[in-house]
Each structure stands twice: as C-alpha cells, then as structure tokens.
C-alpha cells in the first residue's frame, strides 16, 4: 500500500526556523499539496464536492486539481448532500478513498443521516468486516453577515458521534499533515476548517507526511494557566498568552488538533502542571466541546485544580448577520484574556 511509506511526524518545524526545513506556503496551498500528493500516490483517492473544479477551487484548496488528475477523479456534484455522502460511503466500502469537500459546514446537516447513521457505525455494526475510509472537509466562514445558516461552528454535534473522527487544524503544517493522515485513515474523518486559517502562511515540508490523529500540540509552554484552543482560536490564545507574559503570567497553550480521538493525556498533563484550565471553542457553549474538556479535567484531575475550569465558547444562539450584532456574538482573544484573569483570581 502506498500509504505505509508516509512518515508520521507530530513535530512541526519552529516557525522561526530556517527555510531548509520547509517552504513557506499559504494555508490553501498546503491543503492543495496534500490532495495532489494523495491523488498521485493512490488511484483509490478521489475528490468530490460542489465547486471543487470551479475557478475559485474551494478557496484555492482544490484549484486546478481536475486539470492534473482528470474529471473522473476530481468532480463537481449535484446539490444532494444526503445521497452524495452515501455515494462516498458506498465508494469507500468498495475500496476507494473519497474526499468530499463542502465550502460550508451548515450543509453537513443534510448529510447527518449518512454520517451518523451509516459511516460512523459501519465498522462496529458489521463486527469489523467493513471500514469506511472517507474524508469530509468543510470550512466555517465568519463575518460579512454570513448569518445563521452560513457560519455555524458545528463541531459539538459531530463530536458526540462514536465512530467518527473529528479534526480541526490550525497551522499550515497541520493542514497538510492532518489531511494526509485523514485520507490514510480507514475511518470516516470530518475535518472542520475555518476561513480565518486561510490567511495563514507557514513552513510546510515538500515531502508527504502525516500528522497523527489524536495527538495534541503544546503550542506554547507555560506554568500558571492552561488554555486549550482549537482551529483559529489557537492564534487568539497565543496572543492572549503574549499579553500575560508581559505581566509575568505564564500561559500554556494546548492545541488538540483532533477532537476525536482526543489527546486526553496531553491536556491532563498540562492541567496537572498549571492547576488552571480555560477551554476556548467556537462552538455553542452548552453540551459542547469546551464543556466536555472541562468535565474531563474535573473528573480526572480535580485534585490538581486551583480554580474551577472555565469555558470560552460561542453563545447558545444562532449567528446574527448585522455587523454590530456579529461583533457582539463572536469570541476571541479578549474573552480568553478575561477567562484567564478569572481563573487566576481564584486561589
């Protein structure tokens, strides 16, 4: 199998390192390179989705791939998310490795039956006799009045489903390495990306490599508070940590990278060290990712906690469209800073 030759590496070259360790690529270029290399090494891989072969090419992530790999392997789809997800499941069962792109995660609700009732259950329900090596990729937008049906952070819903893997990259290096790992994986994997990440540029090695699913990255080491944040909130957490450093407070930033499987050990080790936990997640607050990670810490390292864990999460509301309301709705660096202050006050 072509995939056994791909190096697994969890380590990201330091962003201030020398150019020899990688080239600077934009975020969409990193995704595109992962797709192009996967299509090149394995004829079982194909890419589908509405607009994957149009001039914008999924914000650049799939641009031009149909020209290199042909219209059979990189193809546009009818607007039929339910059945097309089922078609991808059926093709995966037939030995293929489909990668199905959605430019908005809101439309994944239409695919919920095939994801939750079918893809995620197939390996278990059939006693291991089948597997569904399927990748679904969707990108959350934010701002410019996208509103309640074009900017949802849906990870909390998909996080609940056993059998599905859930990935939220934050760096260019991970965007490539996690996508390759997802395509290589024999399970259904949902990658929820964010348009804010698409502004990133970073070091990306040219060779194929896989960032293992289920391994968190400590983005910044610290002693006083642990901030767990995924996707574009990693950047906000790092900015918050920078501010606290100036005040003599040392913040550790943990990027889980994959929510399922969740690297509980890295998170718990960090909390055991700092004794304080803030979890930042763009999804809805109640019953969501942040709640689960806080519960994990409360259950597993309560004795180490010096303060109750805090959630920084989206409010339990649909996204408003108007620019002033939108501003009030979203969380970011300021909310993380406030939460860190909050856990520091409690001795």
């Amino acid at each position: 199998m072509p995939w056994s030759k791909i190096t697994e590496t969890s380590l990201e070259p330091a962003s201030d390192g020398d150019d020899a360790r990688g080239r600077i690529l934009s975020y969409p270029e990193a995704i595109r390179e992962a797709l192009a290399q996967s299509l090149a090494i394995d004829p079982a891989v194909f890419v589908m989705g509405q607009g994957v072969d149009d001039p914008s090419g999924m914000f650049g992530a799939t641009r031009g791939l149909h020209e290199t790999f042909g219209a059979d392997r990189v193809f546009d789809t009818p607007l039929a998310e339910t059945a097309l997800t089922g078609v991808a499941v059926g093709a995966a069962l037939g030995g293929m490795r489909p990668v199905y792109f959605h430019n908005r995660p809101d439309f994944l609700y239409l695919a919920m039956d095939q994801l939750a009732n079918h893809a995620a259950k197939w390996h278990y329900m059939f006693g291991g006799a089948a597997c569904v090596p399927l990748v679904l990729w969707a990108c959350t937008g934010r701002g410019w009045g996208s509103g309640a049906q074009h900017s949802q952070a849906v990870q909390g819903l998909f996080f609940q489903i056993p059998g599905l893997k859930l990935v939220m990259p934050s760096t260019c290096y991970d965007a490539k390495g996690l996508l390759i790992a997802a395509i290589k994986d024999d399970n259904p994997v949902l990658i929820l990306d964010h348009r804010f990440n698409f502004r990133n540029r970073g070091y990306v090695p040219e060779e194929m490599y896989a960032v293992p699913l289920g391994r968190a990255a400590v983005r910044r080491e610290g002693r006083d508070v642990t901030v767990v944040a995924a996707s574009h909130l990693v950047m906000d957490a790092l900015r918050a940590a920078e501010e606290f450093a100036a005040q003599g407070v040392s913040v550790e930033v943990v990027d889980p990278r994959t929510l399922r499987p969740l690297d509980e050990e890295t998170i718990l080790n960090s909390v055991a060290k700092t004794g304080r936990l803030v979890v930042a997640d763009t999804g809805w607050r109640s019953g969501g990712v942040a709640a689960e990670i806080c519960a994990l810490a409360a259950e597993r390292c309560f004795d180490a906690l010096k303060a109750p864990p805090r959630r920084v999460a989206g409010p339990d509301l649909p996204t408003p469209a108007g620019c002033t309301l939108e501003e009030a709705y979203y969380i970011g660096k300021n909310e993380i800073v406030a939460a860190v202050r909050g856990v520091l006050k409690q001795k």
Partner: peptide, 12 residues
C-alpha cells in the same frame, strides 16, 4: 439509506 451506497459501489 442504502440506495446511495449501491450507487457508490458502482462509482468505485
């Protein structure tokens, strides 16, 4: 639920 799977097998 199975109908698209059969179509997917044919696509494969």
């Amino acid at each position: 639920g199975g109908i698209p799977h059969g179509v997917g097998h044919a696509l494969a």
